[in-house]
Amino acid sequence: MHTSIDHVFVGALRPLPPEGQLTGMFKQPVDGPVAVTAEGLAGDRQADRRYHGGTEKALHHFPVEHYARLAQRYPERAALLQAGVLGENLSTRGWTEETVCIGDLFRAGSVLVQLSQPRRPCWKIDHRLDAEGASLFVAQEGITGWYYRVRETGTIAAGDTLELVERPNPELSVAAYWRATQAHRLDPATLRAIAAATGLAPEQARRLAERAAWLENNPAGG
C-alpha cells in the first residue's frame, strides 16, 4: 500500500478573519526536502498548542478528494477549496479515512511516521472558509483527515512515496474509529478495546477509557 505525496505544506502564524485570532492554517507548499522533527515540519507553527501540534499531532494529512465534497456542499467557496486550505501538512490522492488505520506505520523519505488519531474539526474551519457549519459538515461526513506522530526523524518532500510498513490494527480504520467515537452510546467493552489499540494517541485512549467507565456507571434506562 503506497501513494505519492503531492504537496508538503508549512505555515507561520497569521490572523484569522473576521476576529483576528492567530492561526497556522494559512500554509504554503514547499519545494524540496523539509526537515521533520518529533514536533513536525521545520518552519510550521500552531497557534493554540492545547489543541494543535505537539508530538501526537506532529503532521496533519488530509486527502485532496475531500475538497470536492466540500465544494459540492459550499459551491460559493469552490474556488478556495484546494489542497492546503484546511491547514494540512501532507496532501495525497487515493487514500481516505476508510483505507488507513489507527497505528499504521508509514515510511516517507527518511522519516517513519505513525497514525495516531483523526483530526477533530473545530470552529476555525468555518472562519477559514467563511462558511457557517463547515466544521460540523466535516465531522458529520467523517472527512477529518488524520495526524501522525514521528517515530524516526529525517526529511520529507513532495514527490516522496508514502508506503505502509506495518498495520497493527487492520480492523480499526480511521473511519471506523470516528464512527465509533461519535456514537451516542457504545458498548463499554468496545470502547475499551478501541482504547487499547496499538499506536492510538494516549490522550484519546484515556478519554475513551473514561467514557467506558461512565457508561458502565450510567446504564441506559438505569
Rank of each mutant, 00 (worst) to 15 (best):
Y147W: 11
P202N: 01
D31N: 14
L136I: 13
T99P: 08
A189N: 13
L86I: 14
H61Q: 12
A220Q: 15
K57Y: 10
S116C: 08
G94F: 07
Q140E: 13
E76Q: 13
Q72T: 14
V30W: 06
G87R: 07
P170G: 04
I5V: 13
A183V: 00
G24A: 01
A47V: 09
I5A: 09
G94Y: 05
R119H: 10
L16M: 07
E203R: 15
W146M: 02
G142R: 00
E171G: 11
A12E: 13
V34D: 03
G94Q: 04
D130V: 08
A196H: 06
A195W: 03
E76D: 15
Y177P: 00
L90W: 10
A131M: 07
D104H: 03
T198R: 10
L215I: 09
E132M: 08
A79P: 06
K27T: 02
Q204I: 08
F106V: 11
L80N: 13
A42C: 01
G43H: 08
V64W: 01
G24R: 04
P219T: 09
S91L: 07
R14P: 03
G54M: 14
V165I: 14
R167C: 03
E203A: 15
W123S: 04
L186N: 05
A58M: 01
T198E: 14
H52K: 13
E132Q: 12
D160P: 09
T190H: 10
L172H: 10
R206A: 14
D130W: 00
A35F: 06
V150C: 03
V34R: 01
R128G: 02
A175E: 00
A47C: 13
G11D: 09
V111I: 05
R119K: 15
L162V: 10
V150P: 02
E163T: 13
I194C: 03
N89D: 12
F9L: 06
